[in-house]
Simulated scan of single mutants.
Amino acid sequence: HMEAGHIGENIYLQATALGLGTVAVGAFDDGRVARIIGTTGDPLYIFPVGRRV
């Protein structure tokens, strides 16, 4: 979990450097997300990245 936090920080920093926005999403259907992205592990965060509005 600590490593996921460090990765999230880097996503925020890189998005900001590129003039983009992001937000950490931690409340979602774990099983559904795992099936959609095709992983056997449990996802911890989702970080959508895009233009700021």
Rank of each mutant, 00 (worst) to 15 (best):
H1P: 11
E3M: 04
E3Y: 03
E3T: 07
E3A: 13
E3K: 02
E3L: 08
A4I: 02
H6A: 13
H6M: 12
G8D: 12
G8F: 04
G8W: 03
G8S: 12
E9N: 05
E9Q: 15
N10F: 01
I11T: 05
I11K: 02
Y12I: 04
L13K: 01
Q14P: 00
Q14G: 00
T16C: 07
T16F: 14
T16H: 13
L18P: 02
T22E: 14
T22A: 12
T22M: 13
V23M: 15
V23E: 10
A24E: 13
V25F: 08
V25N: 08
A27M: 08
F28D: 08
F28N: 09
D29A: 08
D30G: 04
D30S: 08
R32N: 09
R32P: 02
V33I: 15
I36L: 13
I36K: 01
I37D: 11
I37H: 07
I37A: 12
G38T: 02
T39K: 07
T40D: 15
G41Y: 11
G41H: 09
G41C: 06
G41I: 03
P43M: 05
P43L: 05
L44R: 03
L44V: 12
I46Y: 03
F47P: 07
F47T: 01
F47Y: 15
F47E: 04
P48Q: 06
P48F: 00
V49Y: 03
G50I: 09
G50T: 04
R51L: 14
R52Y: 09
R52E: 14
R52G: 14
